[in-house]
Design a protein around this nucleic acid. Structure first.
Lengths: 343, 343
DNA sequence: AGAGTTGAGTAAAACGATTTAATGAGCGAG
DNA sequence: CTCGCTCATTAAATCGTTTTACTCAACTCT
């Protein structure tokens, strides 16, 4: 203030470790050690350093530290699912629910979370994202984000199930989830129940299909697996559902494993004048905004994403610290949330 | 896979600009210029450099670049509102809706968004967050985040209305929003309509109160302004509402400007056996998950947070680039979303 | 022809922290 | 007394990029 060195510019030049060292009468190395505790420093010296830090208002230059140590204390969360299914109408959804919890977990580990928006081109999305490690949500069999991260040597923890067997992951129990929902729908007499899954090769779709085929075989019901490109989202499911209604006049239940597909299904059923749940019962996997806001609300499962996100961050920190840990971490079990769409 | 060079260790040592320079037969400085375009480089030379980059799989070290240039291409979004009101039941809400849109807008500007979780201690939350600039959501009169950012010289854009008049901000039209909602409630005959706002000194609360007092004065209705600590959240509002029901037997409408307060109000009304909307009408400001999921759903306003977030990011990039721009940016006008709670 | 300008490139400095290797003091054991 | 050891400290190296200050050659104008 007193010295008129720069009016328009912010920051009058921030104090560096050198300034602190000079004021405290020690060397820069000692300042570093005093503040980080990496090496022993005399009590009295440390106090002098701390006083100097306070006097100068010294704030370490994180960029320099990051550069030198190679550690940014930053974690990223991302998914290769297109926004049509990962985000949703009001931009919330699976991804953001994970991100919110992950941000808090990250903070508890002294790390920051960056949000990588779900766009088509991972190269662009990651171009200038600095990160020590990444959380990848439900990767596909050949996942562009995963490829890029691997190429760059970024440690990754997968939420869901990884396409390779050398990656740490949080088991979200795809089988149990699908079984829970399909079993629930089958509790009432059923003539015909098609399955709608994403067209991309993701474990969540594959497991849902496997369980579906098993249960249909066991009950002697016909199998109708409809694959919808994820990017087509709600509208894609709506059109597919209209086709299904024409082809399968006696369908009386639908399992749409992706919530955006489920709302598309509901839309088509409304348009076709089929009453839910009286004529057709519907269930989906993720109990998010879409499922709850639909009328009637959609039967779904509570995936405990907050807990899953926390586990993923914990596991990632273990990985970064080199602490031994099992490759597969058991996530919480899904809990059925029955709602109007299947009652 | 084929070469067994490193089993346990990631990264065999990444190529640097030096390696690229050697392979291309130029100096490091030329490589930098060729890639960034900062200075003219002969077409043929540039091609050699690009070939070397491709061959070595060179990826610039962002930490070094950040260190050297002082630019991290990272923006942060944060709020001093406690999680009880900013996040909510399933961790989603205002903050995350802004964050999601901001992340995408940031990407369009070649920047990354970091999510600062809403915890009490800003010092801790920001300790190792690297950022060129910040988006601050609805700061309080004396805002700890704002103080810290100012002290560190971080450029800030405020969403809502800043407590100081030297900060760029996006006008969310607090007055109009409050007017819209209160006016809507008053369209039906009203005997007594208390106002519930947050106890902290935020412009959003203050404006809601000002409009409320004006409208009450104009219609000759009694004024009852209840201030609830934000951290008390839904439960605090529930208790306050129970007290109100006792004190004001003829209350027939409530304007709870914070959505968490509104759901607390609904809870209390249910417990007291007051039918909504028949006996008491309720409205809140933000049309988020809470408002939509409540039964009956809450009348609220669409604040167009995605657009607001985009404007904030745009404005922040202007600020960082030193481009001239007005201090106040007009956000989209709120739109009333009438729902069951006031019909 | 000489002065000035432009284009393309290079060598070296700079950024600010952490870490390594070296130094010296103090102390106990032989 | 000296060797070996610990403790506290320092000087200097280091990380990889961008940028500054130069150099040199090739042109353009008078």
């Amino acid at each position: 203030m007193a010295n008129g060195q720069d009016m328009n510019d912010f920051r009058t030049r921030r104090a560096t470790v050198k300034d602190v060292a000079r004021l405290a009468g020690v060397s820069p190395g000692t300042v570093s050690n005093a503040l980080s505790g990496a090496r022993a420093v005399d009590r009295e010296t440390r106090q002098r350093v701390e006083a100097a830090v306070a006097e100068l208002g010294y704030v370490p230059n994180l960029a320099a530290r990051h550069f030198r140590t190679g550690l940014s204390n930053t974690l990223a969360v991302m998914t290769s699912m297109p926004p049509a299914v990962s985000a949703g109408s009001s931009k919330l959804g699976f991804l953001m629910e994970v991100a919110a919890s992950a941000a808090i977990s990250a903070l508890e580990h002294n790390a920051t979370l960056v949000l990588v928006p779900p766009i088509a081109d991972p190269e662009t999305a990651l171009r200038n994202v600095v990160m020590d490690g990444a959380i990848l949500i439900e990767p596909a069999q050949s996942d562009p984000f995963l490829d890029l991260l691997t190429r760059r040597g970024v440690p990754v923890v997968v939420i869901g199930q990884p396409p390779r067997d050398d990656l740490p992951w949080i088991d979200m129990h795809y089988r149990q989830t699908a079984d829970l929902l399909i079993g629930h729908l089958l509790q009432q007499p059923t003539r015909c129940m098609p399955l709608l899954i994403g067209a991309s090769a993701r474990a969540s779709h594959a497991e849902a299909e496997a369980v579906y085929l098993e249960r249909m075989a066991a009950t002697g019901l016909p199998c109708h697996v409809i694959r919808i490109p994820e990017a087509a989202g709600e509208e894609g499911a709506r059109q597919a559902m209209h086709a299904l209604i024409r082809e399968l006049p006696d369908l009386d239940a639908v399992f749409a494993s992706v919530d955006a597909f489920a709302t598309g299904v509901m839309c088509a059923l409304r348009e076709a004048g089929r009453a839910v749940p009286q004529q057709v019962r519907v269930a989906t996997r993720y109990d998010g905004l879409r499922a709850r806001e639909e009328r009637p609300a959609l039967t779904a499962t509570n995936l405990h994403l907050d807990a899953v996100a926390g586990l993923a961050i914990d596991r990632l920190m273990d990985l970064l610290a080199g602490r031994p840990a099992p490759l597969r971490v058991e996530g919480p079990l899904p809990v059925l949330v029955p709602r109007g769409s299947s009652a």
